[in-house]
Amino acid sequence: MSTTRMASLSRLDDLVRLVAGRHDLYVRWSRGPDPDLRSTSSSDDLTGVRLPGLSASPLGVEDWWGERPARLWIARRLYDYCHLPRLKDPGTRPWVLCGREVGRGPDNEPLVADVEPLVWIGDDVITEAVHLVEQQPGRWGTLDRHGAREQRQR
């Protein structure tokens, strides 16, 4: 599917409905399926090593999450990497894909093959996710290594 024809979700609840009961859906932060599927694999930013699939984050709710809200689970999955457009490339956007896990990358992230692009995740969904996570009582931050490095240098 070309990204020009891919729909975009505008509400977090729409993403929650899409993910419900599925464990084969992932979110990927990149320039999109068109450039990603030309190579069908990622490379490790640190070493340049080619990986056997596209790195992505799983969206499926784990059984141990119990009766807690799926909405919070999915919001947290988005929040973890919402710093990427700022750090990597302003053209980086989140999109949902269906695929088969073929391994783990250097950050223990799933590597996914046989990728089927499904939908873009719109900015409003990310805004909702950030707001929901930041309302939680515990301390949490994105998986922003660059920001962590800056904190250590102070």
Rank of each mutant, 00 (worst) to 15 (best):
L51M: 09
P137K: 07
A148K: 15
P85M: 04
S10T: 15
S8W: 00
G66H: 14
W95L: 01
T142H: 05
S8L: 00
R31A: 05
R5M: 15
E101A: 13
S30A: 14
K88A: 13
S57V: 15
L12Y: 05
M6K: 03
N108Y: 06
L87N: 14
W120D: 05
T3I: 09
W73G: 06
T142M: 11
I126P: 03
D34L: 15
Y26W: 10
G122P: 06
E67C: 11
A70W: 06
L118E: 09
E116Y: 04
V130Q: 06
G122F: 08
D24T: 03
P33Q: 05
Q151F: 15
R76Y: 03
P58E: 03
A56I: 10
D63I: 00
G60C: 01
L87M: 10
L118A: 13
L111K: 10
D44I: 00
G138L: 06
Y81G: 12
V130N: 08
R38M: 06
D14T: 07
D80C: 11
R38I: 02
L72K: 03
A56V: 08
H146I: 12
D45V: 01
V16T: 10
G32D: 06
S57C: 10
R100H: 14
G21P: 09
E109H: 09
G103C: 08
P94Q: 14
C82Q: 15
P94I: 03
L78R: 08
R71F: 04
D114C: 07
G122N: 11
R22K: 07
R104V: 07
